[in-house]
């Protein structure tokens, strides 16, 4: 777990994410808004029936990049934002939560915007890969975003 600032919590863990753990890490007496996003393993993709997804993470760089993303969110929407990100690795079944993002702030608008920003940045910048396993037993690494050389 990375906790370099009391306002930012980052957890990369094996197995599914639990919403209450994300909720427990955000909120403050001064905060009137809490927003959470949970990414869930769905049972289909591009015409295939998905039974499970296996996640791989380059943990040290992922932690550093997630922390940088949180700092960027705080620089934009306020240094008092509390942010919590949990991301799973290993094998997850349909219905399991793979990523949980929680943000709390004085007013709701900052939390909504920061939460949306964080999930979009995760998709483009954090070294995480997912391999879908299909009902026929085959599997495929999901085509993702290429870093510029």
């Amino acid at each position: 777990m990375v906790k370099r600032s009391p306002e930012i919590t980052i957890v990369l863990k094996e197995g599914p994410i639990y919403p209450q753990a994300v909720l427990n890490a955000i909120g403050a007496k001064e905060h009137g808004g809490e927003v959470c996003f949970f990414g869930v393993v769905r049972n289909h993709n591009e015409g295939q029936t998905v039974t499970q997804i296996s996640y791989d993470i380059f943990i040290p760089l992922a932690e550093n990049t997630l922390h940088a993303i949180c700092c960027e969110a705080q620089n934009t929407w306020g240094h008092d934002l509390k942010i919590c990100i949990h991301h799973a690795y290993g094998d997850l079944k349909v219905g399991n939560i793979s990523v949980g993002i929680g943000v709390s702030s004085v007013h709701r608008e900052e939390s909504f915007k920061a939460c949306r920003f964080i999930i979009e940045e995760i998709k483009h910048r954090v070294p995480i890969w997912k391999k879908e396993i299909y009902s026929n037993g085959t599997g495929n690494w999901v085509k993702g975003h290429v870093f510029c050389k």
Binding site: I57, F58, P60, I122, H124, W129, G144, H145, K149
Partner: peptide
């Protein structure tokens, strides 16, 4: 970056296109 020098005792990783979340 491609032009950066390689430092000894560093762990390197090959990063294919990412697909997290």
């Amino acid at each position: 970056l491609e032009e950066e020098s390689i430092q000894e005792n560093t762990e390197f990783a090959l990063i294919p296109p990412i697909s997290g979340g």
